[in-house]
């Protein structure tokens, strides 16, 4: 049962990036906070296997490439019906690292189309020093942000 007035409000919200606390990401000593995923379809669908990663972690061309290859998504079939896939791709590309409505000020990998957030230079730099083998075993995979960053699903990647 969907109430029309509420639905309109929800759609309006879904189209607007919602930022945690301030209007943009904040870098602190041990980590940072960033936009939380504000699209319910994205959160439900992508969030069933991993946290709904912040769209601002990758440039739009990366999201386009990822969403075009869901039949082999890092070794698994993660296909979606066309309507759902189109909605999620639209959300991700409109809130990507290199577009104005996203972070709008830096491209994390100029000249490249990275498919893994964990291969970005800042990610490798931040995690290379700090993550012990024991922590890696506990997390099972570098895609499991929430194993160490308890607020990851809410966009908080502090150094906990």
């Amino acid at each position: 049962m969907i109430r029309p007035a509420s639905l309109i409000l929800c759609l309006a919200l879904a189209a607007t990036p919602v930022f945690a606390e301030s209007e943009e990401e904040e870098e602190g000593e041990g980590g940072f906070r960033t936009a939380v995923a504000a699209n319910p379809t994205f959160q439900t669908e992508c969030g069933s296997c991993h946290i709904a990663y912040p769209a601002g972690f990758l440039p739009a061309r990366s999201w386009t490439a990822i969403m075009a290859g869901l039949d082999d998504h890092f070794g698994e079939n993660a296909t979606l019906d066309d309507k759902t896939r189109t909605e999620i791709e639209g959300y991700l590309t409109q809130n990507a690292a290199d577009v104005q409505s996203g972070w709008g000020r830096r491209d994390p990998a100029p000249g490249a189309t990275p498919l893994r957030i964990s291969e970005l230079s800042w990610f490798v730099r931040e995690h290379g020093r700090e993550v012990s083998n024991q922590m890696k075993t506990k997390a099972k995979s570098m895609s499991n942000c929430a194993a160490c960053h308890q607020g990851a699903a809410q966009g908080a990647f502090e150094g906990d």
């Binding site: 509420s6 929800c10 919200l13 319910p40």
Partner: peptide
Amino acid sequence: LTLALCALALP
């Protein structure tokens, strides 16, 4: 509040 309403509106 808006988010709570959304949760109610969406199955």
